[in-house]
Amino acid sequence: MADERQYAGKTVLITGGSRGLGKEMAHGFAAQGARVVVVSRNEDVCVEVANELSDRHGVEALGIGCHIGRWDALDGLVDQLDARSLGVDVLINNAGMSPLYDGLANVSEALWDKTFAVNLRAPFRLSALLGERMVTRGGGSIVNISSIGSIRPGPEMAPYVAAKAGLNVLTEVFAQSLGPTVRVNTIMAGAFRTDVSAHWDPAEVDRVTAQTALQRTGAPSEIVGAALFLAGETASFTSGAILRVDGGRA
């Protein structure tokens, strides 16, 4: 009997897919029949998550370790996919980092460069490499995970929000460059309760929730529907869009 799930026969690659929002989306796509490629720095953890996806959802899944902040590592990742004859149908540029610092004058060149490498340079390079292959293969979809901080910036995450604002711009650049064959969209995520949120200042959480229409932070599962929509055929006339999933942040 044919698998009639929405993403049956599709390959979905998720960076930062071993934890947090990335892992939640990995389960969401696997539940819909996708072959999922989980990518993050720790290959052992990626393999563990891939095995979990296979066991729970009955799909093929692959875990690959890759330091996406390194340009040559991204080339190597795509070479691995090519060697396995794995054509990626959906790319989710989810991996990110938002290091803290003590004052703007104390932001080092290394911190700035590292933050941009992961949050902006990596999505650019992967979208360029895999997007061209999608065009050649006749179709595909790219979904970037940005942040509400890109339009509601606070003083404590300048490199991060600047990089995410750049990602918003790249979304439109790639939508135009890869269209009409490949669609490119962005989810602008608000405050979600992941492992990262455990380190948030409680006073900052209170401030953010007070400025949010739904008066709360999001559960990781609440990003899945938006990702499935933008990556799939029900969004066939949606490209270059930025969808806010932030609880109505003012």
Results as ranks from 00 to 15, higher is better:
Ala2Leu: 13
Ala2Tyr: 09
Glu4Gly: 11
Arg5Ala: 08
Tyr7Met: 05
Val12His: 00
Lys23Val: 06
Ala26Gln: 03
Ala26Asn: 05
Ala26Asp: 07
Phe29Trp: 07
Ala31Tyr: 03
Arg35Cys: 11
Val36Tyr: 04
Ser40Met: 09
Cys46Ala: 06
Ser54Val: 00
His57Arg: 02
Val59Trp: 02
Val59Gln: 09
Glu60Ile: 00
Gly65Glu: 07
Ala73Ser: 15
Leu74Glu: 11
Asp79Met: 03
Ala83Leu: 06
Leu86Phe: 01
Leu86Ile: 14
Gly87Leu: 06
Ile92Val: 15
Asn93Leu: 03
Asn94Cys: 15
Ala95Val: 09
Ala95Asn: 10
Ser98Ala: 15
Tyr101Arg: 08
Asp102Gly: 02
Gly103Trp: 06
Asn106Trp: 03
Val107Gln: 00
Val107Asp: 04
Ala110Val: 12
Leu111Ser: 08
Trp112Thr: 06
Asn119Lys: 07
Asn119Leu: 10
Arg125Asn: 08
Leu126Ser: 00
Ser127Asn: 08
Ala128His: 15
Glu132Pro: 00
Arg133Asn: 01
Val135Arg: 14
Asn144Ser: 10
Ile148Val: 15
Gly149Ile: 01
Pro153Thr: 10
Pro153Lys: 13
Gly154Val: 13
Ala158His: 06
Val161Glu: 10
Lys164Phe: 14
Ala165Thr: 11
Leu170Ile: 13
Thr171Ile: 07
Glu172Asn: 07
Phe174Asn: 00
Ala175Gln: 06
Ala175Ser: 09
Gln176His: 13
Ser177Tyr: 07
Gly179Glu: 05
Arg183Asn: 01
Arg183Gln: 04
Val184Cys: 08
Thr186Ala: 15
Thr186His: 00
Ile187Cys: 01
Ile187Gln: 04
Gly190His: 11
Pro202Met: 07
Ala210Val: 00
Ala210Ser: 12
Leu214Asn: 01
Ala219Asn: 12
Glu222Tyr: 12
Ile223Arg: 00
Gly225Asn: 12
Gly225Leu: 09
Ala227His: 03
Leu230Glu: 09
Thr234Asp: 15
Ala235Gly: 02
Ala235His: 04
Ser239Arg: 09
Leu243Gly: 03
